[in-house]
Design a protein around this nucleic acid. Structure first.
Lengths: 234, 234
DNA sequence: GCAAAAGTGTTCCTGGTACACCCATGT
DNA sequence: ACATGGGTGTACCAGGAACACTTTTGC
């Protein structure tokens, strides 16, 4: 195997921006960094890409390592390559964002990174350029979710419309009209109505819905505006 | 300077998907690869990231090396990291796409890569995974240009509305209604009408327009649908 | 005077938005 | 009975889509 002469290599890492929603706030799963430098500081979950490993695989591996979850929605965000972003050694990082059901996570045993779900709106200081990654990920999520059915990935299999409304409101930090939201949502015909929900948070109870997975997967790139889209990006 | 122990580095390259428009077809600037392996085969313009070089800078450097152009619209597309994508040695590539004014390019002296503008619809076989990069870049451009004023980057400073219409039609491979297109376009108020154009391609001549750069740059992320957007992605 | 492209207006209809009241239940 | 959140209908308006004819000029 010949090599390219005179070129210099660098380390390649993955960092994961992991979104979750607890019914009230949009959250990120952060860890306390286990390596020097900045050991113990808040950080995104990350890791190095292995010599024979695909980027997708690496991202999935790292996500699973922290959350125990597989088959999670992930999307490559962007490569971050400032030569000085890691003071130790030049390290390129490919940021991925993931949308997970926060409740599924809670049942998992997490490893020893001391992970915590932190509200996106109250982020602590993060190491390196992780803050930039988070900001970009949030923008990207806002952008994409305004046009595509995506946020279902953050909710359990069964969910109610008020939950979904809360999620949108949390992501965009705006109040939305529930009547209009409802209508748009149902007109997409992606939801299947279930039985009643009793207990939590309401006297009357709200109906559960499930995704019509068939339509969902064939439409995941479909264009539908769940929002007053042109005003949301202001 | 301490190092991360036991991690393996890899080469990091940039590949540029360079779009141009000749008034009729959408084209890509390809080169004949100068390195083994696959020397002489069609390829995107690329190069390795230098040890102290930023990704943006590297992409701009490589673009300038081929086209002589600076201050060109560029956007990071995605990292391609299949471990076997380059048979010589593991090389991660960050693909960028660029929109250039094909006529500005033609006035430049090009280097010895034997570059050629090739219609996107008649691409030759490309080395490695470059075809995947091109396909993704085209999809991304279609997506973004349906919602944002972007394609001006492919045209000269002065252009006519029929030219712009041709460009949209070429990108989406669909015919568009010129009356509706016209109205939408002008309602964005990004264009400033100029004098007549005589010669080329028409007896009557079409008016030139220029971009209102002030509004353009403050609105480059603005949301405006120049197209029957929800039908264009089919 | 005719061919070829530029330019322009109207109607229809969808879909977005604003807005307010009743319903079901637990306490 | 009342408080709390769940659920629903309507009227208005903006903007997208469909559609055809007139204008200018070079030949």
């Amino acid at each position: 195997m010949k090599k390219y002469a005179g070129q210099s290599a660098m380390l390649v890492a993955i960092d994961c921006i992991i979104f979750g929603f607890d019914g009230d706030e949009l959250k990120l799963l952060l860890i306390q960094r286990g390596l020097e430098p900045e050991k113990g500081k808040w950080s995104l979950m990350g890791g190095f890409v292995k010599p024979k490993e695909d980027l997708e695989k690496a991202a999935a591996r790292i996500l699973k390592q922290l959350t125990g979850l597989e088959d999670v929605y992930m999307e490559q965000l962007q490569a971050f390559g400032d030569p000085d972003r890691d003071p130790v050694e030049r390290t390129l990082s490919i940021a991925w964002f993931a949308l997970v059901d926060i409740h599924k996570y809670e049942k998992q045993l997490s490893d020893d990174h001391h992970p915590e779900w932190v509200p996106v709106k109250k982020l602590p200081k993060l190491v390196f350029d992780h803050r930039k990654m988070v900001d970009l990920a949030k923008k990207r999520l806002q952008y994409k979710a305004a046009l595509h059915p995506l946020l279902f990935e953050l909710l359990p299999d069964r969910f109610t419309i008020p939950q979904l409304l809360n999620l949108y409101q949390a992501l965009y930090d705006k109040k939305l009209d529930k009547r209009n939201f409802n209508r748009k949502l149902l007109s997409a015909k992606l939801l299947i109505k279930q039985k009643y929900k009793k207990k939590e948070g309401s006297r009357r109870g709200a109906f559960y819905y499930k995704l019509d997975k068939r339509k969902y997967y064939s439409n995941i790139d479909a264009f539908m505006s769940f929002l007053p889209a042109r005003e949301i990006f202001s």
